[in-house]
Amino acid sequence: MRTTLAIATILSATFAIEAHASSDDAWGAFSKDVSKACITAAKGLIDNGKAVVDPFGSQSYGLAVVTGKAHGGKATVSTICAYDKKTKKAEVGGEIPGEQLIAKPAK
């Protein structure tokens, strides 16, 4: 009986660790997808954009702020991006001046 309980406990802990690692991998992949899609969607507005991604987004959308140099200009600007989790398409809002909003992406 004790052996069975010990084996069950070990297996349960092993599956929990694997599920957590898998979940972390999935969220990491999701974040990369949102970042790539949002930077691409912002190309006509922002040159060399960098994205700061909300790690989980909302129920329906991945969310990010893309920051960089205004297209064809020198000013730093940002835009808000929504990434549809179902269609995997991103849309950006308008240009937000640097003094109003700047997201500092990790290097």
Rank of each mutant, 00 (worst) to 15 (best):
E99R: 15
A75I: 08
I102P: 13
A6H: 08
T79W: 08
F15C: 10
E18Y: 09
A106C: 03
V77K: 01
A90W: 00
E99Y: 15
K89G: 06
A21G: 12
V34N: 08
W27M: 11
V92Y: 00
T4V: 12
N48G: 11
E18I: 07
S58T: 10
F56G: 07
L45T: 15
I102S: 12
A103C: 05
T67W: 00
I46V: 14
A42E: 04
I80Y: 15
H71L: 11
I80R: 14
A64F: 03
G62R: 01
I46R: 05
T76Y: 11
A6D: 13
A37D: 02
A13S: 11
G62Y: 00
E91G: 13
E91R: 12
M1P: 06
T67R: 02
T76P: 09
L101M: 02
V66W: 00
K85Q: 08
V65Q: 08
D54A: 13
V65I: 15
G98Y: 06
R2C: 04
S12A: 09
G68A: 00
F56S: 13
L101T: 00
K36S: 11
A6S: 14
G44T: 09
K36Y: 02
I7C: 06
I17F: 14
H20C: 05
A70M: 11
Q59K: 14
G94T: 07
R2Y: 09
A29D: 08
T4N: 07
K104I: 14
G93S: 03
S12D: 08
D47T: 15
A64T: 08
K32L: 01
H71I: 07
K74A: 15
K74G: 15
A82F: 05
K89N: 10
D24W: 07
D84C: 06
G49Q: 05
G28N: 11
A90E: 03
S58Q: 09
N48Q: 08
S35L: 00
K107Q: 06
V65H: 09
K74P: 04
P105H: 09
K107M: 04
Y61L: 14
V65S: 10
G98K: 05
F30H: 07
A106G: 10
K74N: 15
A82V: 09
M1K: 12
T67S: 15
T87I: 07
